[in-house]
Amino acid sequence: MRILEGAGTYVATTSNHWEEHLEVPDLSCGTYSLPAGGTDPQSPHTEDEIYLVTHGRATLWTPSGSAPMGPGDVAFVPAGEEHRFIDIVEDFAVVVVFGPAEYSRAESDTD
């Protein structure tokens, strides 16, 4: 067992903040924080993602639709799908779980 200290805690910042809490071959987990009024610059990942909102309010946008998100909401974004948080109306934090671990499917520079 391992307790992931600080997972889901909003980190006050003037831009986006990522903190990884765990990485094992089959998954990784971290906290992504965005300030109210901020911009989410993320691009599609090569791994599936689960978002669990722990703090604040924003809208999760994808080309196929968008959904308001608040504390307790959970969303799944499949690998490769364009997505970002928009309309960040309150300081916002999500626990992000990648399966498999983040960047594990990305091509390396030696491939």
Results as ranks from 00 to 15, higher is better:
residue 1 M to C: 02
residue 3 I to W: 10
residue 6 G to W: 01
residue 6 G to Y: 12
residue 7 A to W: 01
residue 11 V to I: 15
residue 13 T to Q: 09
residue 14 T to E: 14
residue 19 E to D: 01
residue 22 L to M: 15
residue 22 L to T: 11
residue 22 L to V: 12
residue 23 E to A: 15
residue 28 S to T: 04
residue 28 S to M: 03
residue 30 G to I: 02
residue 30 G to H: 02
residue 30 G to A: 07
residue 31 T to E: 13
residue 32 Y to H: 07
residue 33 S to H: 07
residue 36 A to E: 10
residue 37 G to M: 03
residue 37 G to W: 13
residue 38 G to P: 06
residue 38 G to F: 10
residue 39 T to W: 02
residue 40 D to A: 01
residue 41 P to K: 08
residue 42 Q to Y: 02
residue 43 S to T: 12
residue 43 S to C: 01
residue 44 P to G: 02
residue 44 P to K: 03
residue 46 T to S: 15
residue 47 E to M: 07
residue 48 D to W: 01
residue 48 D to I: 05
residue 49 E to A: 10
residue 52 L to N: 05
residue 55 H to K: 09
residue 55 H to M: 09
residue 55 H to W: 12
residue 56 G to R: 06
residue 57 R to C: 05
residue 60 L to T: 08
residue 60 L to E: 12
residue 61 W to I: 00
residue 63 P to Y: 09
residue 65 G to S: 13
residue 66 S to D: 08
residue 67 A to T: 15
residue 68 P to C: 05
residue 69 M to N: 05
residue 70 G to T: 15
residue 70 G to K: 15
residue 73 D to Q: 04
residue 73 D to R: 04
residue 73 D to E: 14
residue 74 V to D: 04
residue 75 A to R: 09
residue 76 F to R: 14
residue 76 F to I: 13
residue 80 G to N: 12
residue 81 E to F: 08
residue 83 H to L: 06
residue 86 I to H: 10
residue 86 I to N: 05
residue 87 D to I: 08
residue 90 E to C: 10
residue 91 D to Q: 03
residue 91 D to I: 10
residue 92 F to G: 00
residue 93 A to P: 05
residue 93 A to C: 07
residue 94 V to P: 07
residue 96 V to W: 02
residue 96 V to A: 01
residue 96 V to Y: 08
residue 98 F to D: 01
residue 98 F to P: 00
residue 98 F to S: 07
residue 100 P to E: 10
residue 101 A to G: 13
residue 103 Y to P: 01
residue 103 Y to R: 12
residue 107 E to W: 04
residue 109 D to M: 06
